[in-house]
């Protein structure tokens, strides 16, 4: 009886393990292929071996010769960095207010905020474009990071949920101790929200880094001033068929994200579990 149960569990584990391995291979496969192709000479690009016959790093300097990918990476980094900072600052503030301060229509306003999650970015792009052109910011990086300083529904929601887990007595004790609302936020709630901030920082950074649509709209379309996502898209049209170069560029574009994932996966997983979304 017990042995059959054990046996069944054993085969169940095997099946689950096999399914997970298969899933992992499907996810990792394209990345491995990308690395492999980026290390092949152009002449061997259609050679289907996983380990290149001739391994070379020549694609990387050649890519930089053709396209200033280092400048594009820098642009991406600046834009993603500033907008991540903006999102962290404003979303944590808004989340704190929604979680801690009692005010009339708080829940109604919060639901309204959540409803904006359902509005696709494409809907607001034209009015937003008109505003930024009116402000004389068209052609600069500002339109890509300024909106981040105006908060965001997802981040506000995420931070609010986290702040709700902090016992309200902490804020009350601080009020009795003589702390102002700003003091409570910066000295007590923000330091305690580090895990949530880290998780959200990864989301925000990745979102901004991967953005192609807005960058394509607002940035000048020359290779030096654009981001790496736009750069790769342009490269793909101009140098079609040069897969090793393309893969070298793609690898450079995703490398920062992979690094961030690698070092912060603990927070990232925590963040997903916490938000209960996605």
């Amino acid at each position: 009886m017990n042995r059959t149960a054990d046996k069944r569990r054993f085969w169940g584990d095997i099946a689950a393990f096999a399914a997970l391995t298969l899933g992992a291979l499907c996810m990792v496969g394209p990345f491995v292929w990308m690395i492999s192709t980026s290390l092949k000479p152009i002449a061997e690009q259609y050679d289907m071996r996983l380990i290149p016959q001739t391994m070379t790093l020549e694609n990387y300097p050649r890519l930089v010769d053709i396209m200033p990918i280092h400048l594009q990476l820098l642009n991406s980094f600046i834009i993603a960095g500033i907008s991540t900072f903006g999102q962290l600052l404003t979303c944590s503030m808004a989340g704190f207010i929604f979680a801690v301060v009692r005010f009339p229509f708080r829940n109604v306003l919060f639901v309204l905020l959540l409803i904006t999650l359902m509005v696709p970015a494409q809907v607001t792009v034209i009015p937003q474009f008109i505003v930024f052109r009116f402000l004389g910011l068209y052609g600069t990086q500002a339109p890509l990071y300024l909106p981040a300083f105006l908060g965001g529904a997802f981040g506000t929601f995420l931070m609010r949920q986290y702040f709700l887990t902090i016992p309200s007595e902490l804020a009350e004790a601080a009020r009795i101790d003589g702390a102002s609302l700003a003091r409570i936020f910066f000295t007590i709630y923000l330091p305690l929200a580090k895990p949530a901030l880290a998780a959200f920082a990864i989301f925000a950074f990745m979102f901004s880094w991967n953005d192609l649509f807005q960058a394509l709209i607002y940035l000048p379309s020359n290779m030096e001033q654009t981001t790496v996502t736009v750069g790769l898209a342009l490269f793909q049209t101009q140098y079609a068929g040069q897969w090793p170069l393309m893969m070298a560029g793609s690898l450079l574009a995703v490398a920062p994200i992979i690094l961030v994932f690698f070092f912060a996966q603990k927070y990232f997983m925590g963040g997903i579990a916490m938000s209960g979304l996605k």
Binding site: P167, E169, L170, E172, A173, A174, R175, I176, D177, G178, A179, I188, P191, L192
Partner: peptide, 27 residues
């Protein structure tokens, strides 16, 4: 609350988890 000249001890103590005992007391 801060101007009432009172101090309160909470059921769950409400100590600031990221501050040392000294900072908690001196806050």
């Amino acid at each position: 609350p801060k101007d009432r000249d009172i101090a309160m001890v909470f059921q769950n103590y409400a100590l600031y988890p990221h501050m040392t005992v000294a900072r908690n007391m001196g806050f």
